[in-house]
């Protein structure tokens, strides 16, 4: 069965969706990702949807769900590279994905995730802060 790969980069998980998602694939991704967060103890999830050109309300909800689930498992989710048409569709569907962090591209998404994680771990980061 087709699967979307989940890559691990340090304490982050990287998901790049290269195909147009259908419902089954999205559900698999959801459960795989949650399992993966649990297994690796990842602190952040980056989902790149720059290749997704079609989205429906179900997909919008899945993305929202992933963000909420990750949050419960103490991992931040950033959705990056959303196409203008997809953004308009989501807004028109009434799914502004309020709980989800977004960024323009993978680079900015990474930056944002690192910043968020650093904010959450002030004690560990403090030492680095002093030396800077």
């Amino acid at each position: 069965m087709e699967k979307i790969p989940i890559l691990r980069m340090g304490n982050l998980l990287l998901v790049t969706i290269q195909v147009d998602l259908y419902d089954r694939l999205a559900e698999t991704l959801e459960s795989d990702l949650v399992q993966m967060i649990k297994k690796t103890g990842a602190r952040g999830v980056l989902i790149d949807i720059s290749a997704v050109s079609i989205i429906d309300s179900f997909m919008g909800r899945i993305i929202g769900n992933i963000a909420t689930m990750s949050k419960i498992l103490d991992a931040e989710t950033v959705v990056v590279g959303m196409q203008p048409a997809v953004a308009i569709t989501l807004v028109e569907l009434g799914l502004p994905l309020n709980g989800v962090l977004t960024a323009l591209n993978v680079e900015k998404g990474m930056e944002l995730l690192k910043k968020k994680i650093a904010e959450e771990e002030p004690e560990e980061e403090e030492d680095h802060g002093d030396t800077e």
Partner: peptide, 12 residues
Amino acid sequence: IKTVSATRLMGA
């Protein structure tokens, strides 16, 4: 508000 939401979704 819609325009603002869409911009936010794009990551801006």
